[in-house]
């Protein structure tokens, strides 16, 4: 299936949101691929859904929960094992101020 990229796909915006630096060649390739995906999804728009209630889930299951009983978590050593850098039992990240 080959189609042109979807008209509402802004690859620069998508790349920025995903924190990806793409080359011009990658942008062209991914635009094509993502466009194909979007066109594929667009086919769902052709289905007649008159009388079908909108749902966020495919299964009619609701009210899945657990009682509020706390149980032990990870030790701080285990929790931080994957951290590239740590100090004072906290994960060190580049300075971020929103």
């Amino acid at each position: 299936m080959t189609m042109s990229s979807a008209p509402d796909l802004n690859i620069d915006h998508v790349a920025k949101l995903a924190r990806l630096a793409l080359t011009a060649e990658e942008k062209a390739r991914f635009s094509q691929q993502l466009g194909d995906v979007l066109h594929h999804i667009e086919q769902l728009g052709k289905v007649d859904v008159t009388g079908v209630e909108p749902t966020a889930h495919a299964f009619p299951i609701t009210n899945v929960w657990a009682d509020d009983i706390a149980r032990p978590g990870l030790t701080v050593e285990t929790a931080l094992r994957n951290a590239p850098a740590q100090r004072d039992n906290m994960i060190v990240v580049p300075k971020v101020v929103e």
Partner: peptide
Amino acid sequence: LNHFATESLVDY
């Protein structure tokens, strides 16, 4: 997040 001069420390 705890902000310091050049880095931030994260407590979850």
